[in-house]
C-alpha cells in the first residue's frame, strides 16, 4: 500500500479551471463537455479541443474508468505509481494510483476516483482499484 508522493506542489489554480479544483475539494471529478460536438475532453479548457467550439460546460464524471498505462517509480521513497486512466466518459487523464498493491497494477484494471489532500487546502483526484 502506498500513497501519492509525500509533498504535492501547488496545482496552480487559474480562472479557467477554478471550478475543477473547487469540485475536487468537494469530492467530485469534473470533465469538460462540449455541447456542440458532444465529446468530453481532459484537461479541461474553455474551447473544445476536438471541434474548437466555445460551447463547453462542466460535467461531473462518474469517477470510474480503466488503467490505460502506468509506471511505478521504484527509485522514489516511498515508491508511487503514475497512471493514465481512461474515464468512462472517454478522455484519458494523468493521475496516481493509490490504496493499491503496486506489484499487481495492470493495464485494463477497473479503477475509481478518490481524493487526496494536497498543499494549500487543494485536493487532487486520484484513483484506486474498483
Amino acid at each position: 500500500m502506498t500513497d501519492t508522493q509525500a509533498s504535492i506542489a501547488h496545482p496552480g489554480v487559474n480562472p479557467e479551471t477554478q471550478a475543477y479544483w473547487d469540485a475536487a475539494a468537494a469530492g467530485r471529478l469534473l470533465v469538460r463537455h462540449c455541447t456542440s460536438c458532444g465529446k468530453d475532453h481532459f484537461y479541461p479548457r474553455a474551447a473544445c479541443p476536438h471541434c474548437r467550439s466555445a460551447a463547453t460546460e462542466w460535467k461531473e464524471a462518474r469517477g470510474s474508468g480503466t488503467i490505460y498505462s502506468y509506471s511505478v517509480m521504484r527509485r522514489a521513497s516511498p515508491p508511487f505509481a503514475v497512471a493514465y486512466v481512461t474515464l468512462d466518459e472517454g478522455p484519458t487523464m494523468f493521475t496516481n494510483m493509490v490504496e493499491c498493491d503496486l506489484d499487481t497494477l495492470a493495464i485494463g484494471q477497473a479503477v475509481e476516483v478518490t481524493f487526496v489532500p494536497a498543499n494549500d487546502g487543494l485536493v487532487l483526484p486520484v484513483f484506486r482499484p474498483r
Partner: peptide, 28 residues
Amino acid sequence: PDWQLPDVPFEVPYGREVINAYAMCAMR
C-alpha cells in the same frame, strides 16, 4: 514547472517526471 502552462497543474502534482512519462509509453 511553470504553473501558468495549461497542462502543468494536471500533471506535475502527480509526480510527473521525464522517466515515468516515457515508462508509460513502454508499458503500453
